[in-house]
């Protein structure tokens, strides 16, 4: 039943761009890759109970990787670009994961922020590679799927289909991961980390694996972002984006896939529509953010509450009180 629903959604998603105008298709494409980004964030939050204030690390680094690749190989292949992105994401999530795997709660959030800020700083200063704050213009690759001639379908539509395919792949990767023994181990960590250790699970390594999977999904989204924008600047590694993805999660409600997708779509819609109403759209978005956090619907607060209850739970004696 679920599979049928997913297939229908994919079909609708594939047919939509043929019917929408090019600018609407662009917006739809943006919704698609932001959905993947939001899904990767929710994965960490739902299954590890970890709130990341710097989730766009892999997103931004992958975007830069893609831009640099295509600038040095204008005729490069998208396949290679995506493989490169997966590699970058694995390296980045493993290295940052080594720093993060012993941390929880507020320290974790601050550390993710610090690491992402550091990347932002390097991107802003390393002019030789990233052109610093001016950003990297990118020669947009031609999307040439086999069997479809260049004239039949526009690049805009092809990019949309590419985004849809990558979204399905990324989400599918996460869904598959959860069904494997390693994915189960990840869920165990959220439920009762100390008991998982008492069963023999090496919790730090399991966390690293989860970071990698989430990072790969975020990286794939970042690659799409680069191709979509044709331009990458340190903004991709900045605070704004990390706040945006949190907001998407709040709008969309709990859940691992549909929720963040809805949130991403709603957020993109907001961003598109607001400039028509006010000259300070980011301010309005910030107000909405605060309001959402304050009056958050039961769905999300249910998730937050559940996670907090688990964290506060008395794990048997961590050594402070002798008995």
């Amino acid at each position: 039943m679920k599979i049928a629903g997913i297939v229908v959604c994919c079909l609708v998603g594939a047919l939509l761009p043929l019917w929408l105008s090019p600018s609407q298709t662009r917006i739809f494409t943006e919704m698609l890759y932001l959905s993947l980004f939001a899904i990767s964030f929710c994965f960490l939050f739902n299954y590890l109970g970890l709130l990341s204030f710097g989730h766009n690390l892999c997103f931004g680094l992958s975007a830069y990787a893609v831009a640099i690749y295509f600038n040095s190989n204008p005729d490069g292949s998208l396949w290679i670009a995506f493989l490169l992105v997966i590699g970058v994401a694995v390296v980045a999530s493993t290295l940052s994961g080594l720093l993060l795997m012993r941390l929880n709660g507020g320290y974790f959030a601050l550390m993710t922020m610090a690491i992402c800020q550091l990347a932002f700083f390097v991107a802003s200063k390393w002019r030789a590679v990233t052109r610093g704050e001016d950003g990297l213009m990118m020669s947009t690759p031609q999307i040439t799927p086999p069997g479809i001639s260049n004239d039949a379908v526009s690049q805009t539509v092809l990019l949309c289909w590419l985004a849809l395919a990558v979204l399905v792949f990324g989400a599918g990767l996460l869904a598959w991961y959860l069904r494997t023994p390693l994915g189960r181990a990840t869920i165990l960590l959220r439920e009762n980390e100390s008991r998982a250790a008492f069963l023999g699970y090496d919790t730090r390594v399991v966390k690293l694996a989860a970071f990698n999977v989430s990072g790969i999904a975020a990286g794939l989204a970042g690659a799409l972002y680069a191709v979509y924008q044709g331009f990458v600047s340190p903004v991709a590694l900045g605070f704004g984006l990390s706040g945006d993805v949190i907001m998407m999660t709040l709008i969309g409600g709990s859940g691992s896939f549909l929720g963040p997708a809805i949130g991403a779509a709603a957020y993109t819609g907001l961003e598109d529509v607001l400039p028509g109403f006010t000259s300070h759209p980011r301010f309005v978005i910030a107000v909405i953010f605060v309001a959402l956090v304050l009056f958050v619907p039961a769905g999300i607060s249910g998730v937050l509450g559940r996670i907090q209850r688990r964290r506060d739970r008395h794990a048997p004696v961590k050594g402070e009180v002798p008995a």
Partner: peptide, 10 residues
């Protein structure tokens, strides 16, 4: 079997 990521646990 934790690292048997090609298999579904159930």
């Amino acid at each position: 079997v934790t690292w048997h990521i090609w298999r579904s646990l159930d």
